[in-house]
Design a protein around this nucleic acid. Structure first.
Lengths: 245, 245
DNA sequence: CGCGCTGTTGAAACTTGTCAAAGTTTGTGG
DNA sequence: CCACAAACTTTGACAAGTTTCAACAGCGCG
């Protein structure tokens, strides 16, 4: 199981506070005043470490906290009554998981670490309390939830109207853009997920994912070597995404 | 353009208040105390009527209100930069539209009346104010937003892993269930949208939608006559949805 | 060092899309 | 109220894209 680490015990207590976190501009604290930041610090007391393959939560677990990815990489996947299994998202540093659990007080999906990772645990009732006193936090929370709705809708658009090549191109560009926002290279990264997980997320079979990667490589759009990806021609990928209109 | 109707001018002012609305158990007021209901009433002052085809808002319009469907039927659709157009949802009485606008302070999609309809306008800043004072309203708002995330994810699942027949079966069952929740027949209703709009929502071409309806009809699962649908065999539709696992 | 998981590639089958034509309904203007 | 046009629906034949099944290669973990 994941270890529990109360913040004060941590090596460098400063770096663990939201106010000092280098992800604060991407994450929940974005746009808060110093005072609000201090209150947020007092709320987020626990971080947990997960080894690759460990679950942060499972479908059916009671919901009481949101989880902010502090380091590492997660997938969430939904397991339907009828046994269908689909990856609903990939989550990197600074992103929030668990918003889908609020509606039923249960997590509807599993969250699995795809590499060794670290999460900040955000007790939701206390976050609600705090956001009743801090309008800008309240608004920010609403914006984060709304952003999740918007991004799910753009996945719906992708799944509903794009062909395999367009989906993969959009997927790579999305990853690239999120890496850039975190200060990493926009054109070179390791995929932490398998072809099957990519396929599941994009509504494709793993063989199709593999074939499209090979095709992109032949056309010198990317260089793939297993999980290592270099994007060679971002503009061309963009034209592929916007193609079929 | 849509007419503006301040509530006091309305024929029967009582029926227009949330506290007296027959949709209150489905809509925003669900689960509130009487006192909170009164406050909500004071906030929702304007309703608007829309003729079939009219827009409640368009992509790019500034966001400042949520809209609750009081009567009628709406679709929302997203128009991508690259000209792709996709229906992202159908909305019936008691359902909230516009949550996706919070994140950017602009509506990302169009909302169009598919029949003559009526919306309650809910000024979002005032709703936030009120929810700072009424924890149960706050929680309820969060649940509604979360429910939207969950339902978008189940559409992702549908688009990502179901074949045409399963999608249509799931779609019909979903409509049936929502009709039932509103006190209508679970098995007989009018579709307010075209085959093309259904297809757009489900990631299919209109011809495919039409063919699957015909197939269902031949198999005596439904009886279709243009927009009039009777569902004849709900259990069998259910088995179709849960088939491919 | 080998076994298992992951990834690649090929050929055939299947599903859905495309194009086309004709039928039906709806709405508008005379 | 009727006639006509426009929009929507149905159906068929064919094409294209994706999946399925299968075989094999490579990498990584125990």
């Amino acid at each position: 199981m994941a270890e529990l680490t109360p913040v004060p015990d941590y090596d460098d207590a400063l770096r663990s506070a939201c106010s000092k976190c280098n992800l604060r501009e991407l994450c929940l604290p974005s746009g808060l005043s110093n005072e609000e930041l201090d209150q947020l610090d007092s709320l987020i007391r626990v971080r947990r470490f997960y080894r690759k393959g460990e679950h942060a939560y499972r479908a059916g677990d009671p919901f009481d906290s949101l989880y902010a990815v502090r380091a590492g990489f997660f997938k969430t996947n939904l397991l339907n009554e009828d046994g269908r299994d689909q990856v609903t998202g990939f989550h990197m540093a600074g992103e929030l998981m668990g918003l889908d659990g609020i509606s039923t007080d249960q997590h509807p999906c599993d969250a699995v670490a795809l590499e060794d990772s670290e999460l900040c645990v955000i007790p939701f009732s206390r976050l609600e309390e705090l956001s009743r006193e801090a309008p800008s936090l309240q608004r920010h929370l609403h914006k984060i939830m709304s952003r999740e709705i918007v991004s799910d809708q753009s996945v719906m658009m992708l799944l509903g109207s794009m062909r395999a090549e367009e989906r993969l191109a959009a997927f790579l560009l999305n990853l690239s853009q999120r890496m850039t926002a975190r200060g990493y290279s926009p054109s070179e990264f390791y995929l932490r997920m398998t072809r099957e997980e990519i396929g599941s997320y994009l509504g494709l079979k793993l063989e199709t994912v593999s074939r499209v990667f090979s095709r992109f490589q032949n056309e010198a759009l990317i260089a793939v070597q297993q999980k290592h990806i270099r994007i060679l021609d971002i503009p061309k990928l963009r034209t592929i995404v916007g193609q079929s209109c």
